[in-house]
């Protein structure tokens, strides 16, 4: 315990800022500023126009009000189809992600299976579902089925990665316990690995379902079914009141599904 006896307080020295760190700080922020400036032209940034044309903007926004719900039954019907195609796209992806995820896990499969499988999943993930949707529209024709296929392929890429990360984080000792009984590799996975990762897998799958409903609302723009198809039509027809109605229906349904899915995810973890 230090006691002050002399009446003179001891002056504690603050640690000197490290030169290297401050230089790094300045360089880091400088670099960030450079990147912003470099991107300015390419991104065609014209902030002044927002202010100059604010009158037009107000007029544009006014066009959305009041929303026109006259054809709400068609919108609701299309929203339902959107959800249904997200359901199938997600379920098929979950089914495929189980083997693909396990085969991309370093602690389960040998490297000569893991590496090609991972690259394949990388590719499925790297290509946006809209791109897949355009390709599948060509292959199987216009309509929700093309959307299902697009979500299926893209989501498999994402879920397989998430699933394999869960598998790589498991506790290996129960698996060893199963192995010691003379079980096969497949039985080790079924009894030792899957029970450990199941809660996470379910949670990831529900989360992807939420995202897929959101993605499915735009798939229609390229003709792959769902509410995006009519949304695109009304926007192109400058029917902003109808656009507002559709957007409201999308926001409400997506929010409801998000809430339900969040509750379910809390249940399983």
């Amino acid at each position: 315990m230090a006691t002050i006896t002399s009446g003179r307080e001891k002056v504690l020295e603050l640690p000197k800022p490290e030169l290297k760190r401050s230089v790094m700080n300045v360089l880091g922020w400088g670099l960030f500023a450079l990147i912003l400036m470099w991107s300015w032209d390419g991104a065609d940034m014209r902030p002044m126009e927002l202010i100059r044309d604010s009158g037009n903007m107000v007029k544009f926004v006014e066009g959305f009000f009041p929303p026109n719900f006259v054809e709400w039954e068609i919108y609701a019907q299309e929203m339902l189809i959107t959800i249904q195609l997200a359901v199938w796209g997600t379920v098929l992806a979950v089914i495929c992600s189980i083997p693909c995820g396990i085969l991309s896990s370093e602690n389960i499969a040998p490297w000569w299976i893991v590496q090609p499988m991972r690259r394949l999943m990388d590719a499925a993930r790297a290509i946006n579902e809209i791109v897949f949707a355009m390709l599948f529209v060509v292959a199987v024709g216009l309509g929700p089925f093309a959307g299902v296929l697009a979500l299926w392929v893209h989501t498999t890429g994402i879920l397989a990665k998430l699933f394999s990360e869960a598998v790589e984080a498991i506790d290996p000792s129960p698996v060893e316990g199963i192995r010691a009984t003379g079980a096969t590799r497949l039985e080790e996975v079924i009894y030792g690995v899957i029970p450990q990762v199941l809660p996470l897998w379910i949670s990831y799958s529900l989360y992807r379902f939420e995202s897929n409903v959101r993605s499915a609302t735009v798939l229609g723009i390229v003709g792959a079914g769902g509410i995006g198809m009519i949304l695109w039509e009304v926007i192109r027809g400058f029917q902003y009141a109808e656009t507002a109605a559709i957007v409201i229906i999308i926001v409400v349904s997506v929010s409801i599904l998000d809430i339900i899915s969040q509750r379910l995810r809390k249940l399983v973890i």
Binding site: S173, P174, E176, G177, I178, A180, Y191, G192, P195, Q196, L198, P199
Partner: peptide
């Protein structure tokens, strides 16, 4: 085999 950490599948 009986292990120190039991190695049961807890779930």
């Amino acid at each position: 085999v009986v292990f120190q950490q039991f190695n049961l599948v807890e779930r």
